[in-house]
């Protein structure tokens, strides 16, 4: 569904991605692991065009999207949940969700999708008139995910959706991701929580210093000492 072929990206003179190639097959959950500064966020920002890369051979559903304007990406069926619970702080929860459907013309579809998001995260229905900036971290994350879902994406990119959240909320978010997957959404997930991410994912890539160093089925990586090494060093 999504394919990156030798993508390079840099900030100024500093190259942060060195020939990253990865693919996300339709209907799968793929996760992207790696320590801080490994280039995970840059990878997804490059995919959606928020970061312009020097070599951007990226294909979505077989069509190149490397040169697509970032605000058009969502209309292709790719939605991204940026890191750090990126909401519109001075808008209500309901308005945040509506913004996610900015490119959707059909009003009844928006209402329907709002229903689905409320179903997925009931707390958002309770707090729909609260300003998003006043919500707790976990709830803001739900708003951000909900907003991404409002465009009916085929592919959902999530950048560290559980960063800094309490374990109970982490579990809730992962449950939601499982449900979305069972409804047919393909997912590319960045997470620090390697064990949990691997438990959910079908396939995983480990980035180190902007390069893919390990890849494989999640079951295989789960028991792979190299993954642990990437995080905790040699023992």
């Amino acid at each position: 569904m999504l394919e990156l072929n030798g993508v390079r990206s840099s900030y100024g003179r500093i190259q942060v991605l060195h020939d990253v190639s990865l693919s996300v097959p339709e209907g799968k959950i793929v996760c992207l692991l790696g320590a801080n500064g490994a280039g995970k966020t840059t990878t997804v920002r490059t995919i959606v065009g928020l970061h312009r890369s020097t070599k951007n051979d990226i294909k979505f559903l077989g069509k190149p999207i490397g040169a697509t304007a970032p605000h058009k990406i969502v209309t292709l069926g790719i939605a991204m949940v940026p890191e750090r619970r990126d909401v519109f702080p001075d808008m209500t929860v309901a308005d945040n969700l509506t913004m996610g459907a900015y490119s959707v013309k059909n009003r009844s579809q928006v209402r329907e999708d709002m229903e689905r998001v409320h179903n997925l995260f009931p707390v958002l229905a309770e707090r729909k008139s609260a300003y998003a900036g006043t919500l707790s971290g976990g709830q803001q994350q739900m708003v951000a995910i909900g907003r991404a879902l409002m465009s009916r994406p085929k592919l959902l990119l999530l950048d560290e959706p559980t960063l800094g959240l309490a374990p109970l909320l982490v579990r809730q978010i992962f449950e939601a991701l499982k449900r979305l997957h069972s409804e047919g959404i393909t997912i590319l997930l960045i997470d620090q929580n390697a064990r949990q991410a691997l438990a959910l994912a079908d396939y995983a890539y480990v980035l180190e210093n902007g390069r893919v160093v390990i890849e494989g089925d999640s079951g295989f990586l789960h028991s792979n000492p190299d993954v642990r090494r990437a995080y905790l060093g040699a023992i």
Partner: peptide
């Protein structure tokens, strides 16, 4: 108008929602 407001509050999130900055 909502797009303008969204872009003012959070440029990246607005872009990702389909707003042309």
């Amino acid at each position: 108008g909502r797009g303008m407001e969204a872009a003012a509050q959070n440029r990246d999130a607005a872009t990702l929602s389909g707003v042309s900055i």
